[in-house]
Write a protein that binds this DNA or RNA. Structure first.
Lengths: 344, 344
DNA sequence: TTTAGAAATGCAATCGATTGCTTAAAAATG
DNA sequence: CATTTTTAAGCAATCGATTGCATTTCTAAA
């Protein structure tokens, strides 16, 4: 059962006293086969349990209806939803997905890309890892004639297809909302600045402060606070300042925001009265916490669909596009109780 | 850039006035090549930006270091963690993963399996979809010489490699715990009975009742309540009974348990005093709800690792195995506030 | 210097499917 | 019935890498 040879078109041909080319034509729905032999071929193919060898077929045809996806982690809601969105489109087109995780490691990202290039996939959809160094491997992708679509965490300097998230505007909106709610000292939890998305979110934060005439207090900006634990740690630090913040924008993730909430609750600080909290990504749990968390929805599944559609060149009408190579999905601020201290 | 031909070993051979076979040997680290030419070949390979065509290589060698994974949904914590676990092992072995979702559709599951067979993957790891009909496609997998590992939702009748979860014991434990806490009328939210895992959980529930001399009340058993909404609906029904339950075991999922909690809170019913709630799967949010939810951890990442290890025949020692083909990962009851009405 | 033995390289078939071209058979036309 | 046209089927090369076997080159021992 292990080592049996699988039936090929030659087996079918031999059994029917035909040439393999006729079998191939019959199976691929080609016209140049008589109806009777075609029926015969199809019948014996089923009998012999024949399956096309797509490796041979792809090799000969020089095409490969397979797309590689590289994400930092698949067990994160945000990314698995994107993948679900991608898959919805590629499935319909009859394309296969090879999904790889970089595990936020640059080295591993390189390896993933390498294997995908060797596999001769026809497209690669990629979101770069946290310890991103340079984009030689991305250039390599296009150099090998493979279509690259970057999404979310992209290298701006490369002229590839991209699906972006309007991080700056979203952060701007979030901070503006906090200001409108009367918060005066708004802290920022920021992510690794080698990733464009975190730079953009910080820019949005700064822009909002500027617009409303608020000073930028360096002490209120904390680096690399993007897990629940790191968020909690940063919050403890912040709250022990002589002039502590009255709101924290966890621009890195909802997990960081949860860490903030943890500390607030254990220190008896009232949210949203004494401390406003805003996260990022609209993870499912943000609706469940007490109080529920204000956050930003990025429409991850939509992002995924757009990535795939961009690949297939079928863009939706209702999205912003620049050069025809870039799609912007506007995120949405979801206002919940963690920042609502006056009626709105 | 699109249609350029990729360099092959023949291009390298031609440039160096060598035969392709030498190039192939040099690149595959074979011994029968002189050190000088080997160095030369490696150098020009890099210059010409050569990448092995794995389709050609696999075709010739008749092997394919690729494994297909079929899951109902990847944007569910439980499954994406399993995949993460699988990937951790397969990555080390230099295997690629092709991940497919059946979206809980039997028809689509068939298609996934079909494509994977055509791709000549060397293994398929699969968890069957909710509207499972029959396992002809699974038989087909092994008939084509592909090693099949089923996990979680498996077809018991097939003699394949399996990683199971001890659902019955877990459910038994959970219900026993509820009984110990003094709950008297324990309701069950059950899932589609065509899936073995839900049958097993029900069996565990019934066994626990029996052992403690509790009657089985049909009215307290509700079918197909496995989303937040359906869980809420079922709870409303249950609570309007003349003799409502004082505990609900949402054996289907934590999402259903969340639905139960929703209704309890909106009807002012105190949890755990007036109503005990227990979920299944230990989703991340169960720790966050107020009160936190008692649930069952299935060690999903562990399951994934074991699936892959079973494929590679390297089993851990600390797990139960039957015939050497089945691995059991014992789940663990996580007791939290939603069922703790006396000190324990 | 000759020659056995080892090392390096070349040759050609192979994996399975596809496809341009040629030939054979059948159908249509005069 | 002869000829042209259409249709069906076969032949053989191809995709790119691998590998058993044959051949050449080199090394070292006689």
């Amino acid at each position: 059962m292990e080592n049996q040879k699988r039936t090929t078109i030659y087996d079918i041909a031999k059994k029917l006293n035909l040439n393999a080319s006729s079998v191939s034509r019959a199976l691929s729905g080609n016209t140049n086969v008589s109806a009777t032999t075609k029926a015969l071929i199809l019948k014996t193919a089923k009998e012999l349990n024949y399956r096309q060898n797509s490796m041979a077929s792809n090799l000969r045809k020089g095409e490969n209806r397979t797309i590689g996806v590289v994400v930092p982690r698949i067990n994160q809601n945000y990314f698995s939803n994107i993948i679900a969105g991608i898959e919805e489109v590629t499935y319909q087109k009859g394309y296969n997905l090879i999904i790889c995780q970089s595990n936020e490691s640059y080295e591993r990202e390189l390896k993933c890309v390498d294997t995908l290039i060797n596999q001769h996939v026809s497209g690669i959809f990629l979101s770069i890892s946290a310890d991103f160094e340079n984009s030689d491997h991305l250039k390599s992708i296009t150099e090998h004639g493979i279509k690259l679509v970057q999404f979310d965490r992209v290298d701006d300097s490369l002229d590839t297809y991209k699906v972006l998230s309007g991080n700056e505007e979203a952060a701007f909106e979030a901070v503006s909302h906090l200001i409108e709610q009367g918060y005066q000292r708004i802290a920022l939890l920021e992510g690794p600045q080698n990733l464009n998305i975190f730079r953009q979110r910080k820019a949005g934060y700064l822009a909002a402060l500027k617009k409303h005439g608020f000073p930028v207090v360096e002490d209120l900006i904390r680096e690399n606070a993007w897990t629940r634990e790191l968020g909690a740690k940063a919050t403890e630090d912040l709250l022990s300042l002589p002039e502590p913040p009255d709101a924290i924008f966890a621009s890195t993730s909802d997990f960081a925001a949860l860490g903030v909430l943890d500390v607030a609750q254990s220190s008896g600080i009232k949210v949203p009265q004494e401390l406003g909290i805003c996260g990022f990504s609209n993870e499912a749990f943000t609706e469940i916490t007490q109080p529920s968390l204000t956050t930003i929805d990025q429409f991850s599944k939509e992002i995924g669909k757009n990535v795939a559609n961009l690949y297939f060149q079928k863009m939706k009408k209702d999205v912003t596009t620049d050069t025809g190579k870039v799609v912007n999905i506007k995120p949405q601020l979801i206002i919940r109780n963690s920042t609502l201290r006056n009626g709105g």
